[in-house]
Computed example of a mutant assay.
Amino acid sequence: MSAKFRVEGLTKSYGSNVVVDHLDLEMEEGEFLVLLGPSGCGKTTTLRCLAGLETPESGVIDFKGRHVFDSGRRLNVPAHKRDVGMVFQSYALWPNMTVRKNIAYPLKVRKMREALAGGRVEEAAAMVHCEHLLDRYPSQLSGGQQQRIAVARGLVSRPDLVLFDEPLSNLDARLRDTVRTEIHRLHESLGFGAVFVTHDQSEAFALGDRLAIMRAGRMEQVDTPQRVYADPATDYVAEFIGMSNRLELHRGAEGWRTNAGVDIALERDLPDSDAVVARLWPDDLELYRDLASVPSGVVPLEAELLSSEFGGRTYDVTVAAGQEELRLRASSALHGSWLRGAEEGTKVVVGLRPETMKVYPLDAAAAGAEAVARPLVAAS
Rank of each mutant, 00 (worst) to 15 (best):
G191E: 09
G193W: 08
L211A: 03
A216N: 14
I264M: 08
V228G: 04
H184D: 04
I213W: 00
G191W: 12
R257N: 07
L285A: 04
R215V: 04
L280Q: 00
R180I: 04
N245M: 14
R289T: 13
A253W: 00
D231K: 13
A260Q: 14
S308R: 14
A278G: 12
L287C: 09
D231G: 05
D200M: 12
P271E: 09
L305R: 14
I183R: 02
A278E: 02
E267P: 02
L266P: 05
A212Y: 00
A212W: 00
Y236H: 07
A265R: 15
L249C: 03
A216H: 11
H184V: 12
S273V: 11
A253I: 03
E182F: 02
E188N: 14
A303P: 05
A238C: 08
H187K: 12
D290F: 04
E254Y: 02
H199C: 07
R268A: 15
L287D: 02
Y288V: 08
M243K: 06
W256N: 04
Y236G: 06
R268V: 12
A265Y: 01
E267L: 09
Q226Y: 08
S296N: 11
D209A: 12
E239R: 14
Y236A: 07
V195N: 06
L190S: 06
H184L: 13
L270W: 11
G252C: 10
M214Y: 08
G191A: 12
R227L: 12
L305H: 11
A253C: 02
L186T: 10
W281K: 13
A194P: 09
A275V: 10
W256Y: 11
E248G: 05
